[in-house]
């Protein structure tokens, strides 16, 4: 599935990571990451816990800025603009690069207000009802909730909540959607629905997904980056990128031994 949906034209790089290292205070979480995220494809970040894949994901929309002592070295650029340049406003950036979290986190508001929250922030002038409907249709939730838009988002099932969160993210019409293990709290059927949805969404958005589930990565993604943890001399643990390639390559003929071991389920 992943190979035939790949576009044949030379792909444009949306997010470029060049030799980036991430620190929390004195602790180094990631070291020397270089990685190009292609436009309108799904890139999966996989690896054992503590390998820093979520940390990297949160660098792309600067959500780590809220963590005390966080600092990034090297360069991460978005369409050629340095993400961490002083003139970049993280608030504006996050409106271009949306995020879906591990645990569904709808606001304690109505379904409608959940979707309308983002557009209202930027003073959206168009037809809000229409935008809500389109976003819910895009996230394949419309048919289930069209009669209860005034109901609290928290009253939905877990899978529906997560699709609501996806609808909320796309309502601001972002360029990139970051997904941090979006299915880890869901049952298998809800997971499949969201995986199908991802294939729809990638026609319009660049998607980066962090996942623990290798099967999921092989099912949904075009590109896969495998991260691993290594011990430093001082006994600390630091994450690094082992291998990055087309998903098919990573799962069928990886170059690195540790990738081979990980994708065949021998550790992690």
């Amino acid at each position: 599935m992943s190979s035939d949906t790949k576009s044949s034209s030379p792909t444009e790089t949306v997010l470029k990571t060049e030799n980036a290292s991430v620190y929390y205070g004195n602790f180094r979480a990631l070291q020397g990451i270089s990685l190009d995220i292609p436009k309108q494809q799904i890139t999966a970040l996989i690896g054992p816990s503590g390998c820093g894949k979520s940390t990297l994901l949160r660098c792309y929309n600067r959500l780590n800025d809220l963590v005390k002592g966080f600092r990034v070295e090297g360069k991460i650029s978005y369409h050629g603009q340095d993400l961490y340049a002083p003139e970049i406003d993280p608030v504006e950036l996050r409106r271009r690069i949306g995020m879906v979290f591990q645990k569904p986190n709808p606001f304690p508001k109505s379904i409608y207000d959940n979707i309308a929250f983002g557009p209202r922030l930027v003073g959206y002038k168009g037809d809000m009802d229409d935008l809500v409907e389109r976003s819910l249709k895009q996230s394949a939730l419309w048919d289930e909730v069209k009669d209860k838009l005034k109901q609290n988002g928290a009253a939905l099932s877990g899978g529906q909540q997560q699709r609501l969160c996806i609808a909320r993210a796309i309502a601001v019409q972002p360029d990139v959607i970051l997904m941090d293990e979006p299915c880890s709290a869901l049952d298998p059927i809800s997971t499949l629905r969201i995986e199908d949805l991802l294939q729809e969404l990638k026609q319009h958005y660049t998607i980066i997904i962090v996942t623990h589930n290798m099967q999921q990565a092989s099912r949904v993604s075009d590109m896969t980056a495998f991260f691993n943890v290594e011990m430093t001399e001082k006994g600390g643990r630091v994450g690094h990128l082992v291998e990055y390639s087309e998903t098919q390559r990573i799962f069928q003929s990886p170059t690195e031994k540790s990738t081979q071991e990980y994708v065949s389920g021998r550790f992690g």
């Binding site: 309108q40 271009r96 796309i170 019409q173 360029d175 319009h204 660049t206």
Partner: peptide
């Protein structure tokens, strides 16, 4: 569909 805003 609402397409992703192409302006980067």
């Amino acid at each position: 569909a609402a397409t992703g805003n192409p302006s980067s």
